[in-house]
Amino acid sequence: MINFIIRYLLIAVAIMVLAKYIQGIAVDSFTTSLLVALAMGFLNTFIKPVLKLLSFPITILTLGLFLLVINVVLVYVVSYFVQGFTVHGFIPPLLFSFGISLVSTILGWFFD
């Protein structure tokens, strides 16, 4: 349980850092970044597999590039539900999702 809490706190810090350096992403406070981390975790666990299954034919036709669109859509869904988290454009949420994935992967190496 402690590893879960530490992991999400570090992801929330990464969200604040990424929002500072990626123009088009804005986070109001650390509490907002915690909510964004939890919402992204929830969507990646429950909604993303369903979207991947439904979009399988398109993903095959685009050689997997459509998965990037799914990541951007998930970031926009989080921005819709979490007040204080705003996203503009296509490239900023794409870079944001890459950054969060990278941080999550690195943290997974240390905490698993």
Rank of each mutant, 00 (worst) to 15 (best):
I6C: 05
I6V: 15
I6M: 12
I6K: 10
R7M: 02
R7F: 01
R7K: 08
R7D: 01
Y8R: 07
Y8A: 01
Y8S: 13
L9P: 00
L9Q: 02
L10Q: 09
L10W: 04
L10T: 00
L10D: 03
A12Q: 03
A12F: 04
A12E: 06
V13A: 04
A14M: 15
A14V: 02
I15E: 02
M16D: 07
M16C: 14
M16G: 01
V17F: 07
A19V: 03
A19S: 14
K20C: 14
Y21E: 07
Y21F: 15
I22S: 07
I22V: 12
I22W: 12
Q23T: 15
Q23R: 15
Q23D: 15
G24A: 03
G24R: 02
G24H: 03
G24L: 00
G24V: 05
I25H: 08
A26N: 11
A26I: 00
V27T: 06
V27H: 12
V27A: 09
V27R: 00
D28T: 13
D28A: 15
D28R: 05
S29D: 05
S29G: 03
F30S: 04
F30I: 08
F30R: 01
F30K: 02
T32P: 14
L34T: 04
L34A: 13
L34M: 15
L35Y: 03
L35M: 15
V36T: 04
V36C: 08
A37P: 01
A37S: 02
A37H: 01
A37E: 05
A37R: 06
L38A: 11
L38Q: 10
L38Y: 05
A39K: 12
A39V: 12
A39M: 09
M40H: 07
M40E: 08
G41I: 01
G41V: 01
G41P: 08
G41E: 06
F42M: 06
F42L: 01
L43V: 00
L43H: 03
L43A: 14
N44A: 11
N44M: 04
N44T: 10
T45L: 15
T45D: 08
T45W: 14
F46L: 13
F46K: 12
I47A: 04
I47L: 10
I47Q: 11
K48W: 11
K48C: 11
K48V: 06
K48G: 08
K48S: 09
P49Y: 04
P49E: 06
P49N: 04
V50Y: 05
L51K: 14
K52V: 12
K52G: 13
L53C: 07
L53F: 10
L53P: 11
L53H: 03
L54C: 10
L54R: 04
S55H: 00
F56P: 03
F56Y: 14
F56R: 01
P57Q: 07
P57G: 03
I58M: 15
I58W: 10
I58Q: 09
I58T: 07
T59K: 03
I60W: 10
I60P: 02
I60K: 01
I60R: 06
I60C: 01
L61V: 12
L61M: 13
L61P: 06
L61W: 10
T62M: 14
T62D: 12
L63N: 12
G64T: 13
G64H: 08
L65I: 09
F66E: 06
F66I: 00
